[in-house]
Design a binder for these strands. Structure first.
Lengths: 185, 185, 185, 185
DNA sequence: CAATAAGCGAGACGGTACGTCCAGTCTTGGC
DNA sequence: GCCAAGACTGGACGTACCGTCTCGCTTATTG
């Protein structure tokens, strides 16, 4: 029998979400235990297992309920301004203490070293090629080569990581074409 | 006393790295146990703990030694071609079975849902603004708005996640300016 | 928090005691592992550690519950007969398979050699002195000198080993006086 | 190949025995580890394993070499005096610090409780019977009933424990007959 | 307005893996 | 070729949590 949501104790539900949030802040994702959440929330373990199958969904709900919410950005009329405001809101959310402390560790439990190890060689090659292009005049000299490399790799890596859409050759070509249009003299 | 690296058994070291690689492929990061690695490598657990403090560094070494290595990209003379080839090598590495199966889970243990949850609102707002700009003629109509949104968010998210450099307002502005140059008619 | 005895599973408790008893019979005290007891009892290790601090107390309880129980000896009226029956019950208990196999090793884990080493010199000296006394007529010739030596050393050694009471010079004197009364012609 | 005793390092041998003795005094038998002996003796573990199969024999040798040695007892001419002196030497040896601290734990690793548990019922019954006999005049009133019970049980228990000789009914009878001779009025 | 069924706190249970310790073997370099 | 040193395989230790399973105890419909 599935549990009867009507009879659910809201007091317990909130205590659990708050406890989970606090503990994941303090300990990180991997050291967070259901047992500790139950103890801190003053709740039986079963009450957690009754409503959530595991840590992941529990924290998902905790973030939905207690996570950072950036303000809506009202259009100013100027495209550049709007996009900059939009991204700055995103940056602000990412930087919010509760988020930064918790979420990077949560999202990125394993050593960043590993990703660095995997990404850096590509990045270095890209930067070298862009510098050469700058010297030959194909790329404007006022472009920050490092940021440009990130402009190329960022979307690829993000799409791979988050599976927002399939990672195809066409996507790669589109990214390069767009970025190059920005970089050309 | 620190262990004496000179006396280290290379046979055991390699067996451990291979076993770790195979098991993380088969089970994913979180279900990988040191005990299983030791058993499969035919090695005492202590021999693992003697040389690595935990799962993370062990897998790091396994990837360094056994991970994917993309080919060097030889310059063709054409910038767009070179950058596309470069990114395709990156994509190929990311797609390599050993890597894809293992590394996403490894890098991204926690539910992708969470990140999606955090990123999607920004993304939706960005796409709406870009569509509006397209209608008003500020952005060319042949631009894929979805890819363009990724071009904006990808670098920001990647820089936050990997801490490749500080995530400043200036960086955001530079990204927007560069991307807009590409998108404008 | 101490465990809650009211909730204790009697099924598990008994299974553990039986398993402990069987294994100590088969393997002896030192080769008995908590892990093996848990496995044989079909019980988690924690369930043993929750209720017993270590092997010793666990086996103590196992013996209390499952150990040998000699019959009560009903008085026959004749003192010698009664004492002999009493001691024979003790001997029977000591000889019971479950007991003899297990308990000597359990009580006397260390090499008997050691005790022999320590006791034999005294014993030899005692026997020599008693033989001399027999030759000089101080001790009856029908006395088994070896048994007599044991009569002297047994109580001393037992009192030392079991700490049944302080091991004083007075005790020694009392023992010698009593035994001599028996040995004299 | 058996080790070549001629080449044996006496310095190492003695250092090992001394270290073993010191450690068993400090820690007791069960907490004594070969590793600790080797470390304290400044000796490789292999040097211990080369010459002794295990803890037991090692400690046996340590006691042979470093254990207590009571003085020889010179006959005084009086039997009672001689036997008392003899037993007092035994008691002195048993009481020697090195011995008492170490050896009881060593000989009697397991909980004394257990033996008490097994022996006490017999002992109580014996004492009761002896008291009754005292009341009925079969046993002299100046006899310490507790010591008398020990006189009966001590030899039996010791013979069982040390297997100095088979534990037969005849032996029991002989003990009872001897002791009764001492106890009768 | 009981009664009765659900959620609840608590916590014991069978398990899995942890990270440590030591046994006993093997290897290396020095004497 | 013994020795000190110490890395090795193996296996038990005692602990921490997992997810499941009762226990009594609220608590809130529902017959």
């Amino acid at each position: 029998m599935p549990p009867d949501a009507a009879r659910r104790s809201d007091r317990s539900r909130r205590a659990i979400l708050v406890a989970a949030m606090e503990l994941v802040e303090a300990l990180g994702y991997s050291k967070l235990t259901i047992e500790a959440v139950a103890a801190r929330a003053g709740v039986g373990k079963q009450t957690i297992y009754r409503w959530w199958p595991s840590k992941g969904p529990l924290l998902f709900d905790a973030f939905v309920e207690l996570g950072p919410v950036g303000p809506d950005v009202l259009p100013s009329g100027d495209l550049a301004t709007d996009l900059k405001r939009e991204l700055r809101v995103a940056v602000a959310e990412l930087a919010e203490r509760r988020f930064d402390q918790v979420c990077r560790v949560l999202v990125h439990e394993a050593r960043t070293d590993l990703v660095t190890l995997l990404l850096m060689p590509r990045r270095v090659e890209l930067e070298e090629r862009l510098l050469a292009a700058q010297r030959s005049g194909e790329v404007r000299v006022d472009v920050d080569v490092s940021a440009a490399a990130e402009l190329l790799l960022g979307p690829v890596y993000q799409r791979w990581l988050l599976r927002t859409a399939p990672l195809t050759g066409d996507f790669v070509d589109a990214v390069v074409d767009l970025v190059l249009r920005a970089l050309r003299g």
